[in-house]
Design a protein around this nucleic acid. Structure first.
Length: 261
DNA sequence: ATGGCGGGTCTAACCCGA
């Protein structure tokens, strides 16, 4: 089974690229983030034409996540509320950042973690609070789903080798100790980075700024991840970053990461 | 860099991303 995560930065603007990529890379499930479209306007036909079923949780202009699956999924839900209840979840479910479903006994969670804007801002606080709620959400899911795959755009680079230049990282959003500790607290539930099972090199990135020719100069960050519970980590066969889509005209600033189980 | 690019939409002295 192959599962990909890709922040597409608008599913409508990127539709042709995503459909072409799926044709050439017919993964079982594509977990997309930043779809930036309300559910009624999601371009489902392009994917049904390829034999895929779409499960979407979107909003106008911002955020939005989708599961695009070759086989229909079971037990699909959106947001934190179905798992955590309204008291904890409601303040966070306005922003559409979470969708999950089950395929062959594997629960797949597709996330778009808040960016955080700048260190010390209200959005930075929101990000840390959101990650704390995510920990509770995943703890509940792990109780019922020993085979858990959590993927998406985490907007956190866990280690210095995941950043082209870690100098001054403590002042930069996505790399502060508080963000890393929030993510580590989640991984301590029993999740491990699929990519690092196979690749220990630095200079391995999944996002490059549109500006300053960052992609050409490989000035990137590795912030898109697949985290696996122990039985899935043990059976994982590969995890690769496909840089090809980032080389196209008008690309997303992220590129797909694919795990094979 | 007082964000250089590129999405979005209230098409702007706009907002947001990462």
């Amino acid at each position: 089974m192959k599962i990909a995560t890709w922040n597409v930065n608008s599913i409508r603007t990127r539709l042709e690229q995503v459909a072409n990529w799926l044709t050439e890379n017919p993964v079982d499930v594509l977990c997309a983030q930043e779809t930036k479209v309300v559910d009624a306007d999601f371009p489902m036909a392009a994917f049904t034409d390829l034999g895929y079923t779409c499960y979407v949780s979107g909003q106008k202009s911002y955020n939005g996540v989708a599961l695009i699956s070759k086989t229909p999924l079971e037990s699909v839900s959106c947001g934190f509320e179905p798992v955590l209840g309204g008291a904890i979840a409601t303040p966070f479910d306005d922003q559409k950042r979470v969708i999950t479903g089950v395929l062959d006994g594997i629960r797949i969670v597709n996330l778009y973690v808040p960016n955080g804007s700048s260190v010390g801002s209200d959005k930075y606080t929101y990000k840390l609070n959101w990650l704390a709620v995510l920990r509770e959400y995943l703890a509940k899911l792990l109780e019922e789903n020993p085979k858990l795959l959590v993927c998406g755009d985490f907007n956190v680079a866990l280690e210095d080798r995941d950043i082209h230049d870690p100098t001054g990282r403590e002042k930069e959003v996505m790399a502060t100790d508080a963000e890393r500790q929030a993510l580590r607290a989640i991984l301590d539930l029993g999740l491990a980075d699929a990519f690092r099972k196979f690749n220990q090199e630095d200079g391995q990135f999944s996002w490059w700024d549109y500006r300053a020719a960052a992609f050409r100069r490989n000035l990137g960050w590795r912030i898109d991840h697949h985290y696996l519970s122990p039985p899935l980590y043990a059976e994982a066969k590969s995890c690769i970053i496909d840089k090809a889509p980032r080389k196209l005209e008008k690309p997303s600033d992220h590129t797909p990461v694919i795990v094979e189980l």
